[in-house]
């Protein structure tokens, strides 16, 4: 908008767009900026590492090596370089987190916007459902769903695409399951925004011009809830990453030889014994997960302060 106007009138060129002002405020938030730099470098390194490193993901005789100049994070039970494993784990954890959060975004925005827009009895029922789901142990359903439906999905993938479908089946179930338990807060927030927006005059105007409910939702309401949605997407991300590593830790998430941070921690915890302590096998994956979660949390908090200063809701 600002650019369009500034082409016509010179005096308005000094004005700042809302996004630019938000960026300026975000930049002043030191923890959020540090976290962003860390996250971006982590992603870059995690993507590039397999091409740069000579160690690869190969099994070797160097079993349980302590951290050294060659193996920065030591080696694991199969003699694999732990540094590369942790990076690979971070990549998978971030991928699952991102896709899971996007699934939750789609469900949450759809549910919340529909409830807010339809209003009345529909709104009542849809939000009651959300209340009920809030008070259910949803992750238990995810565990049951993953363990029960895995065989079905795997069989279906193998019959349609051929090949071994177990890895794909796990990924699909993880994305769907994690998305399905994380959309509740998003739905509540979007509904609140939509309720406020639909009373605004520009919505009234489009309605009087004969625009249908869905067009109003798509063209006028959703663009306006975009900022808040992005904020809660960033706040959902660490929660999904945490759930994923939790499931992987239990052996229900990512399966070997693939690694996620959770399954790496599980591998490390399995090696705990009173005789020898392979501390690096726990410390580095755990540190990686904690650093990743912290970075995501700081960025989410920073974005929330910028876009949604009034909110104190943490759920």
């Amino acid at each position: 908008m600002a650019e369009v106007i500034s082409n016509n009138t010179q005096s308005l060129e000094l004005g700042e767009s809302l996004n630019r002002r938000a960026w300026l405020r975000f930049r002043e938030n030191l923890p959020a900026m540090v976290a962003s730099v860390f996250l971006i470098s982590l992603i870059m390194i995690a993507i590039c590492w397999p091409f740069v490193s000579g160690l690869g993901n190969q099994h070797s005789d160097a079993q349980f090596n302590a951290p050294s100049a060659q193996y920065w994070f030591g080696t694991d039970v199969h003699g694999r370089d732990l540094f590369g494993r942790v990076l690979a784990g971070a990549r998978i954890s971030l991928l699952v987190g991102l896709v899971g959060a996007l699934v939750s975004l789609v469900i949450g925005v759809f549910w919340g916007a529909t409830a807010g827009l339809l209003g009345g009895r529909w709104d009542n029922w849809m939000m009651r459902t959300v209340d009920v789901l809030y008070s259910l142990p949803s992750i238990i359903f995810v565990i049951v769903i993953i363990t029960t439906l895995e065989g079905l999905i795997q069989g279906w993938i193998e019959s349609v695409f051929g090949g071994d479908g177990s890895e794909t089946a796990r990924h699909i179930l993880l994305y769907a399951g994690l998305g399905a338990v994380s959309w509740l807060t998003m739905a509540r927030i979007v509904r609140g925004q939509v309720l406020a927006l639909r009373e605004q005059q520009f919505v009234e105007a489009s309605r009087s011009l004969g625009l249908g409910t869905w067009s109003i939702l798509w063209r006028h309401i959703l663009p306006n809830v975009f900022g808040v949605v992005i904020v809660y997407l960033t706040l959902t991300l660490p929660a999904v990453v945490l759930y994923e590593s939790f499931l992987s830790y239990l052996g229900l998430g990512i399966q070997p030889p693939q690694a996620s941070l959770g399954s790496l921690i599980a591998e490390g915890a399995a090696q705990i014994n009173p005789v020898r302590i392979y501390w690096w096998m726990i410390l580095f994956p755990a540190g990686g997960l904690a650093a990743l979660l912290m970075a995501l949390n700081f960025i989410g908090d920073g974005l929330r302060d910028v876009f949604d200063p009034k909110s104190t809701n943490e759920r």
Partner: peptide, 18 residues
């Protein structure tokens, strides 16, 4: 407190045990 939120039980547990 933010550090505590980023250390789930399955991370803290093994460390405390060790």
């Amino acid at each position: 407190s933010i550090l505590a939120v980023c250390i789930p039980a399955f991370v803290l547990g093994p460390i405390l045990i060790v």
